[in-house]
């Protein structure tokens, strides 16, 4: 009797063992949330410069876009009877990138509609995070650009009556297109020019971009491809137009190129999977940006270049299946 009792307590005191397939350990430190947090940290210098240059214009746009994106994510999740997954921070990232790609002068409804369209049409209709084909922030921006052309066009960036100095000027690329006047390189580098909120400072984009690459939360092949293609085509363009003041360096530092290369094009969901695919994707964006800048109707082309390359990402994935170590498996046809 006592023996049976002892046996019983023994079996109860034994810890419950669980069974699960291996691997039984995980890297742990790396989560989707952490990757999104990295993007937010990397955006810090850009956010700081935009607030320093555009003051309340920037603050208003950033707060509005982030709040609307998070709210849109929550509402759409609830409509699909799912637990809102705003804790993965992806809506915050979309909101920040959308805000930083808008002109500070754009009225409040641009931010609201852009956020709703970015999250709704850009992400939720495809099935949510991980299923979207296009970069949600760029979908939102393209949507408001078509809906509110006058609020988003080149001239809308400028408000001569504004108390904020940067806003009283034309953007560097508009100035170039309309008057042929060139902005000094150091101003493009530091960022005290007019433009979309996040694009003006090359320095801030490079700093944040460097952080993303070191943390490996963005693939280096994408910005490398973008800068290489844009730089190479810009050199060719300069060679064909000797004497032009807008040099290859201006092309690289000006406009949304660096912001796009480091923060927009590197969105993992809408970019290819393999190192080679990512490089091709980057090259494509860089080449399209130059084509749109030189031949397009708009002064800038980063948004369209990213969206166009997003649409061919599945094809790039299929073309760049890596050769396995040991060679491909023989297939019966």
């Amino acid at each position: 009797m006592a023996e049976a009792e002892a046996k019983k307590t023994e079996s109860q005191s034994r810890p419950a063992l669980e069974v699960a397939p291996g691997p039984h350990v995980h890297h742990g430190a790396l989560t989707t949330r952490r990757m999104m947090l990295d993007v937010i940290i990397a955006l810090a210098p850009v956010l700081l410069v935009s607030v320093a240059v555009f003051r309340l214009y920037a603050l208003k746009q950033i707060v509005l876009c982030v709040a609307c994106c998070v709210a849109a994510e929550a509402v759409f999740d609830l409509m699909r009877h799912r637990r809102p997954k705003i804790d993965n921070l992806s809506a915050v990232v979309t909101g920040l990138i959308l805000a930083l790609s808008l002109p500070g002068t754009a009225p409040w409804y641009v931010a609201v509609v852009g956020s709703a369209a970015g999250i709704g049409l850009g992400k939720v209709v495809f099935g949510g995070l991980g299923h979207n084909i296009f970069n949600p922030a760029m979908v939102g921006r393209a949507f408001v650009m078509i809906c509110f052309a006058s609020a988003m066009g080149a001239t809308a960036y400028q408000d001569e009556t504004s108390a904020v100095h940067a806003v009283t000027q034309a953007t560097p690329l508009t100035q170039l297109e309309q008057t042929g006047e060139t902005t000094e390189l150091w101003r493009l580098f530091v960022g005290n020019t007019n433009g979309s909120l996040g694009e003006t400072s090359a320095l801030a984009c490079l700093l944040g971009g460097l952080y993303l690459l070191i943390r490996r939360s963005a693939a280096w092949q994408i910005p490398a491809g973008v800068l290489l293609a844009t730089g190479a085509l810009a050199v060719v363009q300069n060679a064909m137009n000797p004497g032009a003041d807008w040099t290859a360096a201006h092309h690289l530092l000006g406009g949304a190129l660096l912001f796009g290369a480091f923060y927009i094009a590197t969105d993992p969901v809408s970019s290819p999977l393999t190192p080679m695919g990512r490089f091709i994707f980057g090259l494509g964006i860089g080449a399209l940006v130059m084509l749109l800048r030189v031949f397009g109707g708009y002064p800038e082309g980063v948004m369209f270049a990213v969206l166009l390359m997003n649409s061919v990402t599945p094809l790039i994935n299929r073309w760049t299946i890596p050769r396995p170590v040991g060679g491909p498996v023989e297939r019966k046809t």
Binding site: E18, A20, H24, V25, H26, L30, T31, T32, M35, K85, N88, S90, G128, L129, G130, H131, A219, P268, V269, S271, L273, T274, R278
Partner: peptide, 15 residues
């Protein structure tokens, strides 16, 4: 040692 997170969607990060 075995604590694991809840599975979420692939974001195609390529890790």
């Amino acid at each position: 040692d075995v604590r694991t997170a809840e599975e979420t969607q692939c974001v195609r990060c390529g890790r």
